[in-house]
Amino acid sequence: MRLRSSLVVFAIVALSPAAIWSAIVPRAFRVGRGPEAIAFDGTSLWIANQFDDTITRFGVDQRRALQTVAVGRRPVAIAFDGAHVWVASLFANTVTMLRPDDGSVVGTFAVGGGPGGLAFDGASMWVASRESNTVTKLRASDGAVIGTFPVGRRPITLAARDGSVWVANQTSNSVSRLRASDGAPLGTFQVGDGPFGLALDGQSVWVTSFFGHRVVRLRASDGAVQSVSPVGDGPSGIVFAGGNLWVANNGSSTVTVLRQTDGAPLATIPVGRGPFGIATSLTPVTGVGIWVASFGNNSIALIDPRQIL
């Protein structure tokens, strides 16, 4: 498996359940216009600037933008497969594959129906199409289409792990599970109020409920609800970082931290307006960083988890 893990496990000192910071002001860095998606490739972050039709390569340890690359119209999703960076362009109906070291474009592939979500399953890149309500499996080496499979309505995000691909269907209030090898449907589970973001931990699927102000944890095997965590307004992106989940709340402009063991909220951090995508980084100089892309003020923000926990 060529996944480059950017997670780190670090010891967390026991803390009181409701310790919450607002004093921390994450550092913000300007990028292009309307960023929603963000991903880490091992040394740099890649941010999709949807209204510029570009992506920005941002050096984590250098703390600055290194490069801007033009892609198809309205890039709203980014993923890293260990070797290449992939960008989904919602209005261009294309997916672009780039080399992370220099941003050169390896290929641009047609994926119809409004591609707006990406996930790598270890061998293939999966693309969710929001208008056609399908997911497409592309061979990661050359972008060849392996298959297209129907899912629920308005599939927004994807996550892949352990041979399964999960899809959040925002309008049909469900998550779908597909077998990665052949796209066979393995189950569809109800998750209310506009499921938006997904994070997988092996036993559970954590789903942000955009209109429901909560994160719902489902058992992966049968979709049974294991916990429900209150978060901010419009929770969207969600990512693991060492024993916790970090959730971007688009409508309240905060990030909520949840404890993975039981989903308890641990902290709420204000960030720039309208955060959507959230990613973790691990680099020699910075250590672990939590990065949030804020649609509202054209920036990304860095949260140092050591300051919070």
Binding site: D193, G194, H213, D233, G234, S252
Partner: peptide
Amino acid sequence: LDADTSQHIG
């Protein structure tokens, strides 16, 4: 119902 939902944090 997947209808009007709360938001009113603020």
